[in-house]
Design a protein around this nucleic acid. Structure first.
Ligand SMILES: [Zn+2]
Ligand SMILES: [Zn+2]
Ligand SMILES: [Zn+2]
Ligand SMILES: [Zn+2]
Lengths: 149, 149
DNA sequence: GGGCTAATTGAAAAACGTTTTCAGTTGGGA
DNA sequence: TCCCAACTGAAAACGTTTTTCAATTAGCCC
């Protein structure tokens, strides 16, 4: 079954709101709408998909504000960009700290995982290439429990 | 030191030409120009950077043809898109088979590495999330031997 | 070598995602 | 309640990628 981090990223609207407020950001109506969309989704969403959903909560929401809010949320570590073969245009909810995403190739649902031990591999690659490795990006692709029937 | 795969991806112009010919693609002048650029670089390059360099070999080369040639080369596995914080617009030479890139954060040089053993981690993540994992995507960031002084 | 034909080309225009600009609005502290 | 920096949406600008289309060309057959 799913681990805590996988099943519930730290992204309910309240905690997001608190995060933004703590950093001095105002909690405006369009921002609340975007926060709510991000908190409720289990898939990664593109800015325009987020825009479409946010308008259900606050119809005047502008696409520009979605972009600006995503920037703020990424800065807070509350969302992370998801890179896929067909483009790098979507964002998924993220919890704080080091974690990565696993994406369902069928339904595009996304969960986080924290079990990321690359230490051994990093050592080997450093030895082979001479590069000093300071960071990494990792994404897993697969099929989620639902889609496996 | 660098491993074989790291220091010399299978990307000299001849081998690339052979690859394309084997797949029934014509070897046109603009394509040769792009092939040569890709084979000679040690950094990842954006389509428009490739275009600028390709014009030195064949001045009429059009940007559109660069895009089309990159598509073909990606299909052959001869280049791979490199994803970075400031955008996902560049391509790096790639050898056949499973490998990933490590990118120098200072000079943007890129080398490949093949030591990628995620089996243990994949098992753990599958257990924790219930997802059946079928593929992955990994990039390392660091500092290359040159830039370390 | 000369001709045939499908593959390929470059220029221009369209499409697309993202950012900038700017005058008007608003959240939230005093 | 008042105030003002933070924030907003619409429109325009922007850079990248794709489409369109008439002209060219690589590679094959004779
Ligand atoms: Zn990690
Ligand atoms: Zn990307
Ligand atoms: Zn370097
Ligand atoms: Zn791998």
């Amino acid at each position: 079954m799913a681990s805590q981090s996988a099943s519930s990223p730290d992204s309910n609207p309240d905690s997001l709101s608190t995060q933004l407020a703590a950093r001095g950001y105002k909690l405006t109506r369009p921002r609340r709408a975007v926060l709510r969309v991000v908190a409720e989704t289990r898939e990664s969403l593109s800015p325009s998909e987020i825009h479409a959903r946010a308008k259900k909560f606050y119809p005047q929401t502008g696409l520009v504000t979605v972009y600006r809010t995503l920037e703020v949320l990424a800065e807070c570590g509350a969302v992370r960009k998801v890179h896929q073969a067909d483009g790098c245009h979507s964002y998924a909810p993220a919890s704080e700290g080091h974690a990565h995403h696993i994406i369902c190739e069928n339904c595009h649902s996304v969960v986080e995982f924290e079990d990321c031990d690359l230490a051994e591999m990093v050592k080997t690659v450093q030895r082979h290439t001479g590069y000093k490795i300071e960071g990494h990006w990792l994404e897993l692709f697969g099929v989620c429990p639902n889609c496996r029937r």
